[in-house]
């Protein structure tokens, strides 16, 4: 939970944090805006054989080849056809660009660090506990703060290849 905790230290309770919010299934999620490089429309994905089920493949991002992860598959949510709303959020994960397929991207929101609550101990909906770095509870909405860098923790990265063997 390293990154989330960083900006939750005492003195920075009032500090404003910007999040990109996106939808997946029926839930709304947020990721730290500084980690997001760009948001692009769905493009031609080339499948990479013998990789885990949630690795959709790779795309050509202006001459750079980057891996694409399906967050629905990763979080064991039901599959859905890509449509006009489908977006790829390109993020900087540990110094490498990586794209995440989401249902749609809604907006950039500001929250104060104090608003971020620790994730509830039991979460339903399939998203593994370890990727959650907090929840933001506002009157009309509940936003789950995701730490996508954790989605690819070291062990995960290793298993990313080994799991297919």
């Amino acid at each position: 939970m390293a990154t989330a905790v960083n900006f939750k230290s005492e003195e920075s309770q009032a500090e404003l944090i910007q999040l990109v919010s996106f939808n997946l299934d029926r839930e709304e999620y947020g990721v730290y805006v500084l980690k997001v490089r760009e948001i692009i429309r769905m493009s031609n994905v080339t499948r990479v054989p013998n990789t885990p089920y949630y690795v959709e493949g790779v795309i050509n991002l202006r001459g750079k080849v980057i891996p694409i992860i399906s967050l629905r598959k990763k979080f064991s949510l039901s599959e859905k056809e890509n449509d006009k709303q489908t977006r790829i959020i390109v993020m900087d994960v540990d110094g490498e660009l990586m794209g995440f397929i989401v249902d749609s991207v809604s907006e950039v929101i500001r929250v104060s660090a104090g608003e971020i609550q620790p994730p509830p101990s039991v979460v339903n909906g399939g998203v593994d506990q370890e990727y959650l770095s907090g929840v933001i509870n506002r009157a009309d909405r509940l936003l789950v703060l995701l730490d996508l860098e954790r989605v690819f923790s070291q062990s995960e990265r290793e298993s990313l290849i080994n799991s297919s063997l």
Partner: peptide, 16 residues
């Protein structure tokens, strides 16, 4: 082009 460090070890694939 490298596949990046996450997919670099994909079996049977050297790059793209």
């Amino acid at each position: 082009k490298s596949l990046g460090k996450y997919l670099a070890d994909a079996p049977g694939i050297a790059g793209s």
